[in-house]
Design a protein around this nucleic acid. Structure first.
Lengths: 346, 346
DNA sequence: CCTCCTCGTGGAATCGATTACACGGAGGAT
DNA sequence: ATCCTCCGTGTAATCGATTCCACGAGGAGG
């Protein structure tokens, strides 16, 4: 592959002049500029980004370590991050942590070894040594979606409190009183916050959130299935289940279907994170939608600010409730299961 | 950040010896090895991958240019590619072409500038100049899912012909005779092949595929919606619609629902590419499933073979039909629409 | 005792770019 | 005519690693 030396030789100039011409430096004659262009064209020359990065100490690359690519919410986040980064002249390397702290650490280390200019993370856990080290060492960094308390890094996320209140109002209005939640890992902020918000919203209606109605999930479909089965096996099962993410809602749907039960007639279901598929499930799922695109954009902007030495502001955007049919008949206002809950197969 | 020089100074050795110790070179004394380890530990040293790449002319990075990340099929493919690559000691940089040739070219160029060791592509079109140039220049490359005829590059894909035959048999068995297809872009191999396979399978039953029943889509949900509306507006609309990918099936579902029609009672629907959500749509969608994980693995292995100078074999794996309920009641064998089938409460 | 290996190590070139510094020539001011 | 600027260009250092080659010490063999 042609290097800058070859271009210099072809153009009859020094590498310095070629480099300056290529970078639009002002003090290059029109004549030299033309000869460089011609040589570049003739040789099909493309600058070696590796060499440039070594010299300039910037890779124009951002790292994004995401909790789980197979989760449509994170896929959309990744997409919007890449779009905004590209618009700003950066590439993005995505690392999929798959909700495993070990993998997350692997990716952080690899990205740091590649000398990315900045790091975007939605931490899987309370903070792995590699990540905390990077934060302390001053690597430009921004948390997105999830964050780690006590670490001085801007956070870009959405606040679901109001939307959760709306959801509980919705459920309450439909006559549901026994409300359960499939929680995310306690090690994640989103895992804890959603439970807290749910409990608070319930309290406003004088409702309790008993321990039996808090199922411990891990943001994956399998855990949603297991937890839901546990709920259904309870002597007094809940009337409504709120899954703290979309994959666990999918698992819940599986478990409910496997028992031959129907949503919302036998049990109501709602999810955090809205995705296109929820419109088409049976029934369409009521969900809390985050402004995912805006989050991605804001996160990249905050990170680029930090890279440029500017402060880099934390951003919190509101989530909103999207009512569909999985919690009960909208408009009727009456409880979906006045008669005892049927739980055998028809 | 500490460099190899700092380590050398700390250990009281030359950079050459440190480098050898770090790379497990045999001719380094046990004593030197220990001192290097200690120095590395003390300084928190991590080798600079950029510098190493410049010298060794290998980045241990693979590029993956994918047609559309928001398509769950490609997300899963990307995931399995990353997994296999990681197992083999490579990182992956994903570029999302979003079905746009221009974007695809941008990513290919960027990846080449970064001197990735090999390139995995599912081409959006007939071959952009950048990509063809790379192939000709000898960049190790493998096509995955889609490919470009006449370019000498291994292809890893799945063959849906048999599964499409099974699908047509299934539809025919359920009494459907007027079958339509939402095709992908003619510029893609998968776009063309699926139509061809469908037409051939139809011919085996003495059925035609009239032009009016071939809708031109672009693998995105919006086009599925538009094309389906067109089908429904026909004087004689089809009895069954086969979408050439899952997103267009989603669009079709939208369009059908918007008309107040029901699947499969009013119209049958099937899709190419199976995804977890199809189990939970209303109704569950009959789809053709590709062995996505295996494809990703095989593609990475073929690419790594090429990088190592070995031939790198093309691989074709069979897809298979997964029957659900969107084409009609399984088992009954009678057409779904003569007598309206009740499916609400048992 | 001398020669010849082998082993562990260091010096220095190298990869492909960027950039500080030096330098020669043209043109303007005095 | 002399001096100073400014402009365009080239030389060479530099980034952080790898690796070829040389070298000194020590042991084996003659």
């Amino acid at each position: 592959m042609a290097s800058i030396k070859d271009v210099a030789a072809e153009a009859g100039l020094s590498v310095a002049t070629v480099s300056r011409a290529l970078n639009g430096h002002p003090s290059v004659s029109e004549d030299a500029r033309r000869r460089v262009s011609a040589a570049v064209e003739a040789l099909g020359y493309r600058p070696n980004a590796v060499a440039r990065s070594l010299r300039t100490d910037e890779t124009r690359t951002l790292g994004l370590v995401i909790s789980d690519v197979m989760n449509p919410y994170f896929t959309e986040l990744a997409r919007s991050v890449e779009e905004e980064a590209r618009a700003l002249g950066y590439s993005v390397i995505i690392g999929n942590a798959d909700e495993r702290p070990g993998l997350q650490d692997h990716h952080v280390t690899t990205l740091l070894d590649r000398r990315i200019d900045g790091l975007l993370v939605s931490p899987t856990d309370g903070g792995s040594p590699g990540m905390l080290g990077a934060a302390r060492a001053g690597t430009p960094m921004v948390f997105v979606d999830r964050w780690i308390p006590g670490v001085d890094v801007p956070v870009v996320r959405s606040d679901g409190r109001a939307a959760v209140r709306d959801l509980v109002a919705h459920l309450h209005g439909l006559g549901h009183r026994r409300l359960a939640i499939i929680a995310g890992p306690a090690a994640t902020t989103t895992g804890r916050e959603r439970v807290d918000a749910f409990r608070e919203a319930l309290a406003a209606y004088g409702l309790e959130l008993p321990d039996a109605y808090i199922g411990q999930g891990d943001f994956q479909a399998g855990s949603g299935r297991r937890v839901t089965e546990g709920f259904l096996d309870l002597p007094v099962p809940p009337e409504a289940v709120f899954a703290a993410d979309n994959l666990m809602a999918l698992g819940a749907l599986d478990a409910i279907r496997a028992r031959g039960l129907r949503v919302p007639d036998d049990i109501a279901l709602a999810a955090f994170d809205d995705i296109p598929w929820f419109v088409h499930t049976d029934p369409p799922v009521t969900a809390i939608a985050q402004p995912t695109r805006d989050l991605g954009r804001a996160a990249v902007r905050a990170l680029v600010d930090r890279i440029a030495g500017r402060p880099g502001a934390s951003v919190t955007l509101p989530a909103r409730l999207v009512v569909r049919r999985s919690c009960g008949e909208p408009g009727t206002g009456r409880p979906p299961s006045p008669s005892p809950v049927r739980r055998s197969t028809p």
